[in-house]
Design a protein around this nucleic acid. Sequence first.
RNA 1: GGGCGCGUAGCCUAGUCUGGAUAGGGCACCGGGUUCCUAACCCGGCGGUCGAGGGUUCAAAUCCCUCCGCGCCCGCCA
Length: 599
Amino acid sequence: MAKSESSPGPVSPDPWAPILEELLDELEASADRIGLGTERGVLESLLDLEGGRQGDVALPVHRLAGPAGRAPPVLAADLAKSWSPSRSIESVSADGAFVNFRVVTARLARETLERVAARGARYGGQDGPGPTAIVEHTSANPTGPLHVGRVRNGIIGDTVARVARAMGESVTTQYYVDDLGRQSAMITWIWSKPADQWPTEIAAAAAVPEPPVRRDDVLYGRPYPFVSAYLKDHPDAQAELAALVQRIEEGHGPPLHRELVGKILAGMLATLARINVRFDTFVWESSLLTDGSVDSVLRRLNGLPSSITEENGARALDLGRYGLPKESSRVVYQRGDGTSLYLTRDVAYHLKKMRSADRVVDVLGQDHRLHARTLDAFFEELGEPRRPIFIIYQDILAHGGGRMSTRGGSAVWLDELLDDAVERARGEVRDRWESIDAAEADRIAEAVGTGAVRFHILRIAPEKPVAFDWEQALSFEGRSGPFVQYSYARAGSILRKSGASEFFVGYDPAHYTSEPEKALVRVIARLPRTLRVVLRTNHVQNVAGYAHDLADEFNRFYHAVPVLSADAERTSRLALVAAAHQTLGNVLDLMGIERLERM
RNA sequence: GGGCGCGUAGCCUAGUCUGGAUAGGGCACCGGGUUCCUAACCCGGCGGUCGAGGGUUCAAAUCCCUCCGCGCCCGCCA
């Protein structure tokens, strides 16, 4: 009953919010009239907002039918019949056990365009200050250039961060730089030897096909896979490496070490920057040793009742009660020689993150799944109330299946993929736009090519196993990044040619009477809800899905509804185009794909 | 062997958390569309035992059980 006697409060950034409130008010009243004492919360939870084929919102009444003592179709019909006309709901109809509500387009359009006009680049998101968040992603070992097997990490992480930021969270992205341990030490080990003292097996690195770009990550990462293989059957080298690892962990590593890690990392970051992936903070693993974080964790762990000392003095936690799929229920966190392990440092790192942010999100490959569970168990043991949120993705497999391997030649370098995509885009641009100058063509090609790659990876759920496919990765049609960019450019073109400078003045939402216009209004209106769901579920593929839906509806509208040549409706249609343009742009931003005014 | 993830048309994929109406898209294929705001587009068609089997339910792609296939992990590596 009670219409909101409370103050309206701040306007919701979601155009559907006030309409759904009204719908629920009326639904409650309608339920009352037919003697249903159903609570508003129940009704609300039953509403299907993506719902109706035959409307905008659907209410399945099965669950209400029993208590009401009537058959579902009867109840649905009764509810529909007792409906009183309202300004938001255009029609209410019963179909079987469903009641379908169709919203008055003009009302939805008004709520939507007002918000797009007022919020601009912030349309779709929410105002802060929200919680603080740390999103850690990529964090690949600095041992060589990135290949596409792991590029999902950065794209997922960066998109999650962008969405969280749009939703009002205060987000810091972090790259955890592994400068400790064997992997990066192998690089230093080999490069600290004069070239004429390299083992021949490693010097043979020169025979491997070269990645297309020559940068420090390529150059210094080159011997890595060969060092790795060489070590397997050279105990003397292993001993050298072990000594080096220990010196590094003790803080006495050669200056070359940090220098090489930094150079390789810079190369990897240059590649990531091409797809608009950048980081706010870099946390060097070694800093956790020097700032005492690891010692402090070690002390806490050693004091735990579940802490055990192994024969050689190593320390472990008995995690038997967690049912981890380990051969032993003991998980070692400190070596016999007193040094720490990756796991221990990661515990320290996460405790640090959880102290400084409300939400801690990690993007991890599926090979880290058990590691993530182990971390959780450690936090439980330590009495830490909070947990990181783990987003687990599957590595992209090589073309025929199987892991991408540098030595086996099945690895596809990310730069190589991007170069190919850009090259193909350049061809497309030239075909369509002959008068374009070279610099402009390059700029557009880079945006289109990299956008295609980023979208291609983003569109698939992270946990889905995928094998790399050049043809699909380089597609510029259909469900693709360029399609969204193209739609944005088309909308921009209309706005430009209109000669107008202000689009959200003098429009009349009652003009949106054709199906394409109604559909376009509805997709635009859907963005805030979509982003709320993505924030909660981390299903970043839905951002790409939404972008495609929006572009799709815009193109249908574009073909069916003339804008510039319209008379009475021109202003209103321009407003709708402007709203679509803004929204497409906002979604491109969320995906880290360049907006192009022309293409 | 154990644990976890994945399995939706020829190919790729959304939907699975929170069960609801004839399972949405895209590619490919077939047929149309450009004197008109960018054809990287639009319209139409073809194509589905949602891995298999059982169970729960008024209702299962979705929940439970069993099995099959693929992947990953089960280190005093990271």
